[in-house]
């Protein structure tokens, strides 16, 4: 391969192309199939769900969705998830960006401090389960959306700080200096000059943080109560002691994932562009 002739190069290219197309095709099918299967299951009757061989063509029923939004009142958990995910995303992106700006521009804490923050990301949530419960219980905030929002905010901070720090470091310092000379305070310079330039980065970061908060289960299962249950927890309620109610459970899974997918389709072009602007250098 070291000194390929023209024809050899073409054939090796050909092989690469074939391999690449297979990889792409397999990735597309493999990625989508479980979600497709979940959605398909949610539209089946109970007998069709349990039957083998599995049915690909079946009479569509909306019973599972009726049960989900009727008896199980899934709108409320959905709303809770939305509130918690939006709250923690906004909170962690705002606080994280502030810290990231200071870390990236002013080197607060030298090199070690940012590393400590990054290391926080490795803290497995299960290690936190019991102590965080006591912390929240002590603050009298059990079963509240506020507590869960705060916990997610914390869990996401390291990620936000690291991603945003990369974005800020890519923005030329000269722009802020010009603003400072024009009489802007540090804060004004950041808000008026730097943040608009970091918008793609903010968007990408927000997306990832939102996904993480939207899908978290372990802590939500113990920190939420009847009125504040989030959507993944409410979905897991269909998995009981004597079996799983597949229909409503898969309907819940579909309802949880669909708005995310729709949103992601709209912004997917910006994900690569946003990441390219800084995250990859962080």
């Amino acid at each position: 391969m070291a000194s390929p002739g023209a024809s050899m190069r073409r054939s090796s290219r050909q092989r690469w192309l074939t391999a690449a197309s297979w990889l792409i095709a397999a990735a597309c099918v493999g990625n989508v199939f479980p979600i497709y299967w979940m959605a398909a299951t949610s539209l089946k009757s109970e007998a069709d769900i349990h039957t083998y061989p599995p049915k690909f063509i079946f009479p569509i029923t909306l019973d599972n969705y009726a049960q989900l939004f009727g008896q199980a009142n899934f709108l409320q958990p959905f709303e809770n998830s939305l509130a918690v995910a939006v709250g923690s995303t906004v909170g962690s992106v705002v606080l994280g960006s502030m810290a990231a700006y200071a870390l990236g521009r002013f080197k607060v804490g030298g090199r070690l401090f940012p590393m400590w923050i990054l290391a926080m990301r490795m803290f497995p949530p299960i290690v936190l389960a019991l102590p965080i419960f006591f912390l929240i219980s002590g603050a009298g905030l059990l079963n509240s959306r506020l507590a869960l929002t705060a916990v997610y905010l914390m869990l996401n901070l390291p990620f936000v700080i690291w991603l945003m720090r990369g974005f800020f470091m890519e923005i030329p310092l000269a722009l802020e200096e010009a603003a400072w000379i024009d009489g802007c305070s540090r804060w004004q310079a950041m808000v008026q000059v730097v943040l608009p330039l970091a918008r793609p980065g903010l968007a990408v970061t927000s997306i990832f943080v939102f996904i993480a908060s939207w899908n978290e289960f372990l802590l939500a299962a113990v920190l939420t109560g009847p009125e504040t249950r989030t959507a993944p927890v409410a979905a897991a309620q269909f998995s009981g002691e004597y079996g799983i109610l597949w229909g409503p459970m898969m309907a819940a899974g579909t309802v949880i994932v669909l708005p995310m997918l729709a949103a992601a389709m709209l912004v997917q072009r910006y994900i690569v562009r946003g990441l390219a602007l800084g995250a990859v250098k962080g």
Binding site: L130, F134, V233, Q237
Partner: peptide
């Protein structure tokens, strides 16, 4: 309060211990 079974024992015990 009906936590999912997968989180029920953990939540009830945590409540009791707290």
């Amino acid at each position: 309060d009906n936590p999912p079974l997968s989180g029920f024992y953990q939540k009830q015990l945590s409540l009791m211990l707290a």
